[in-house]
């Protein structure tokens, strides 16, 4: 079975890097998943290496029963997006993955320079939960079976996610 990313990357997505890059890497991730934590610096390195040849997109796939703080972390990042802080929050969460707790996100919000009061207010917005659920359900339909799952130019990537494997998989799309 080949799995295609459905829906394709669009307006509701968080996109990093050149929007017209020849390669689009989409991650379905869980902020508390240790494997996603391990993939985080690898993606940073790939982004540095491929620069404007690579566009990176993150979609939520929190396993709420397995990971106590996965959903609140996803909500924190989505909330930060309202203040243009999605990627800053995404990064600070992965960089501090071992110390996640219910309250730590306010500390993070402060550290990355968000208006913490507005952040706290927005965190209770019910539409956030819907966005995260929609990401999750679309992921399931696209063949995501765990985290992290990557799609390269719309097709699911079933290989290893060490640097060399991902490097090869991306490089073959660049002429």
């Amino acid at each position: 079975m080949t799995h295609q990313l459905t829906p394709p990357v669009g307006k509701g997505d968080h996109i990093q890097g050149n929007p017209n890059a020849p390669v689009e890497l989409v991650e379905y991730g869980d902020y508390q998943c240790p494997y996603c934590g391990a993939a985080y610096p690898i993606i940073k390195k790939l982004q540095a290496e491929f620069d404007d040849q690579l566009k990176f997109v993150f979609r939520n796939f929190p396993l709420s029963n397995a990971h106590e703080f996965a959903v609140i972390a996803a909500m924190a990042a989505e909330t930060a997006a309202k203040q243009n802080g999605f990627w800053a929050m995404h990064d600070i969460i992965y960089e501090n993955q071992s110390r996640l707790s219910r309250d730590v996100f306010f500390e993070f919000a402060d550290e990355i320079g968000l208006d913490v009061e507005a952040f706290e207010r927005d965190l209770h917005n019910p539409s956030l939960g819907k966005k995260i659920e929609a990401d999750f359900e679309n992921g399931v339909r696209s063949g995501v079976n765990g985290t992290p799952t990557f799609f390269i130019n719309g097709t699911i990537y079933r290989g290893e996610y060490d640097y060399d494997s991902l490097y090869q998989a991306i490089a073959q799309h660049i002429k």
Partner: peptide
């Protein structure tokens, strides 16, 4: 193993 575990995934989508 946890993160790739099939049953954990299904557990998340019982509502679906």
């Amino acid at each position: 193993p946890v993160c790739s575990d099939q049953m954990s995934l299904y557990n998340e989508i019982l509502h679906m």
